[in-house]
Amino acid sequence: MKVRRVTTTEQALEALAEHGSAAQPLAGGTDVMVQLSRNEISPDVLVPINDLAELSTVETNGGVRVGALVTHETLAKGALGSGYRSIAEAAHTVGGWQTQAVGTLGGNICNASPAADTLPPLLVHDAELELRSSGGSRTLGLEEFLVGRRQTRRAPDELLVSVGLTPGAPRSGDVYLKVGRRSAVEVAIVGLAMRLVFDRNEIVSKARIALASVAAVPLRVRAAETLLEGEALDGHLLDEVSAAVLGATSPIDDLRASATYRRLLVPGLVRRAAGVCARRAGVSSPVEEAYQ
């Protein structure tokens, strides 16, 4: 296996243009190196990009733009600010310190695991991906980017360079909740992210709900979001939201948990998440106390 050494993003794009699907970009290596040793992937050329400093920055002018090489450790420390706590919470659960120190946001996105922790919170923040090739660049919504289990719309000559997030809003709160068998270094049995924006009368004006480990790709549940928008939070409404989430998901039995168990988790996660979002938005919540 060859290594193509690059020192700029442009050189990396040239390498990808030259070798196409035979090339594998290599950032922190926490997924790629394991897949190589298991022979799950067999590229001819590795293109290490870990030292491309221009892809490691966070810009917070109005909206937020996160470089693809920003690490989970940086995100977990709250580098995006208080409006993006779900992303910090998710990054904090990706493996242990050793994984978070080198694992990158772009890697988590492009690996496209059904259980990827950062993807539900990115979905609730309407993440837009900037994909660049030597021929130009394009922007694609994360939802559209994710095609199937470990499948994305990244063309072989494209590199994910940054992720744009919707600007924070007043009276908004977000959260990522994860269920695993242990509290650290665990692949999610179910992961749920929620973001709620409230108006002055404590009515939900905008809702986003996304889950991991309940389908082939992490996904947003629009039917559930629509139920919340224009309403005040209450227990009955959240039962309907949970039913909508369950209707849109297709969990499977695997070695971590049964599909039945995953389904049983959803209502409690929905209620807890709504309560935390309300509290973080500074809105009174009728649902949080009983479920915290």
Binding site: V3, R5, G29, T30, M33, V34, P48, N50, D51, V102
Partner: peptide
């Protein structure tokens, strides 16, 4: 699982 080439 850390690529040796990346510690250059």
């Amino acid at each position: 699982i850390y690529p040796a080439v990346s510690v250059d």
